[in-house]
């Protein structure tokens, strides 16, 4: 009788182990992710004593097709690949095409864009490259 009981307990143990394995293997992780596609631009910010800029792609693509900025406004498809500075923005180029107080809020709201911690390198946040390669290598890649 005791033997039978032990066997039954063994069966239950194994079944639970298998079930647990299955759940671990297939269950969604539900992990929280930082936002895919956010671009940090730090071409000049650090040197100018300003926090680097965070550009949220998700916010902008709700409002504009890709081609409006990457086409009509001349943004290259490359983080840090656009020689953007505040003079150009005030002149209505790049971000300044919208951020002029007419289409979107104006440039006196410095800290809304310049909102990354000082020293954050230029990058595409959460990009496949960033996730597959060590962050250090990614930094040098982006600086090119």
């Amino acid at each position: 009788m005791n033997k039978q009981k032990n066997r039954l307990i063994d069966h239950i143990k194994y079944s639970v182990m298998i079930a647990a394995l299955l759940v671990i293997t297939f269950a969604p992780t539900g992990q929280v992710k930082a936002e895919f596609g956010d671009v940090v631009i730090n071409n000049y910010s650090d040197k100018a004593g300003m926090p680097p800029v965070v550009f949220p792609h998700w916010f902008h693509r709700i409002r504009f097709r890709c081609k409006v900025c990457h086409g009509d406004l001349g943004f290259e498809f490359k983080a840090g690949g656009n020689d953007i500075n505040m003079v150009k923005i005030i002149d209505g180029q790049y971000c300044g095409a919208c951020h002029n107080g007419e289409i979107a809020w104006s440039i006196e709201n410095c800290n809304i864009c310049h909102s990354a911690p000082v020293g954050t390198p230029t990058q595409v946040h959460e990009s496949t490259l960033q996730k597959l390669i060590k962050p250090d290598q990614n930094k040098t890649e982006d600086k090119k």
Binding site: D38, V40, V54, I112, S115, V118
Partner: peptide, 11 residues
Amino acid sequence: DGIHDPASSAI
């Protein structure tokens, strides 16, 4: 989110 400065007035 790891890229915004938690102390920034943008928050």
